[in-house]
Simulated assay, not measured.
Amino acid sequence: MAKYTGFLALLICLFLVAATEIQMVEGKYCWKKSGKWNGPCQYSYKCSYHCKHYYGAKYGICKKYKPWGHKYYWAKYACYCYSPCHY
C-alpha cells in the first residue's frame, strides 16, 4: 500500500508542475507600423501612448526600419504597435 501511495503522490506532483507550466505560457504579440504617427519616433513612451489611444494596442515602441526602395542604408525610427495576435 505504501508503494502505491508514494507513486500516487509523485504523479500528483508532476501533474501540478505541468499545470502551472501551462498557465505561465505567454501569448505572442503581433506588430504593426503605426500609420497615424507623424515625424521620427524618438521616445518609446510617446509611441506607447499613441498606440494605446488610437489602436487599442498593448504597447508601442520606437524601432529601426529601412524604407522600401531607398538606396541608402541608414536606419530610421518608426512607431510600431504591439497587440495580442488573433489567429
Rank of each mutant, 00 (worst) to 15 (best):
48 S>E: 03
31 W>R: 07
63 K>C: 09
67 P>E: 11
71 K>N: 14
49 Y>W: 15
63 K>P: 02
59 Y>N: 15
59 Y>D: 08
69 G>L: 15
52 K>N: 12
82 Y>W: 10
71 K>S: 12
57 A>W: 06
62 C>N: 04
53 H>Q: 15
45 Y>N: 05
36 K>H: 12
50 H>P: 01
63 K>Y: 10
46 K>L: 05
37 W>C: 00
76 K>D: 14
43 Y>P: 05
81 C>F: 07
37 W>T: 06
67 P>A: 12
54 Y>Q: 14
48 S>A: 05
56 G>R: 05
49 Y>R: 15
51 C>M: 10
58 K>M: 12
78 A>E: 13
32 K>H: 09
51 C>H: 11
77 Y>G: 00
75 A>H: 12
65 Y>N: 10
40 P>N: 13
49 Y>Q: 06
56 G>L: 09
62 C>H: 05
72 Y>A: 11
52 K>T: 13
46 K>E: 02
63 K>M: 06
51 C>R: 03
54 Y>G: 05
56 G>V: 08
58 K>G: 04
49 Y>V: 09
37 W>N: 08
31 W>V: 02
55 Y>N: 11
45 Y>T: 00
82 Y>T: 13
38 N>L: 12
35 G>R: 10
78 A>C: 14
55 Y>K: 09
66 K>Q: 14
61 I>H: 14
60 G>H: 01
39 G>Y: 04
33 K>Q: 15
34 S>C: 05
63 K>F: 01
44 S>W: 02
35 G>V: 11
57 A>E: 00
43 Y>N: 14
80 Y>A: 13
60 G>S: 02
31 W>A: 12
56 G>D: 03
50 H>Q: 03
61 I>G: 03
59 Y>E: 14
45 Y>I: 01
69 G>F: 15
53 H>L: 12
56 G>W: 06
74 W>E: 15
55 Y>F: 07
77 Y>R: 00
49 Y>N: 10
56 G>M: 00
74 W>N: 10
68 W>N: 02
64 K>L: 11
36 K>W: 03
63 K>V: 07
73 Y>T: 09
65 Y>I: 09
38 N>I: 13
72 Y>F: 13
62 C>M: 03
36 K>I: 02
41 C>E: 03
51 C>A: 10
50 H>K: 09
82 Y>E: 07
78 A>R: 14
78 A>D: 04
74 W>R: 06
49 Y>H: 02
40 P>D: 04
77 Y>K: 01
53 H>V: 05
62 C>Q: 00
47 C>V: 08
42 Q>M: 13
39 G>P: 00
73 Y>V: 01
31 W>M: 10
42 Q>C: 11
67 P>M: 06
75 A>L: 15
77 Y>N: 13
66 K>C: 07
64 K>I: 14
33 K>L: 10
45 Y>G: 02
46 K>M: 05
34 S>M: 10
67 P>H: 15
31 W>F: 03
41 C>R: 08
54 Y>W: 11
53 H>G: 05
48 S>P: 04
79 C>H: 04
82 Y>M: 13
49 Y>A: 14
79 C>T: 08
44 S>M: 05
44 S>F: 10
54 Y>A: 08
68 W>A: 06
79 C>A: 02
39 G>F: 12
59 Y>H: 07
66 K>D: 04
50 H>A: 09
44 S>L: 01
57 A>I: 01
40 P>W: 07
66 K>I: 13
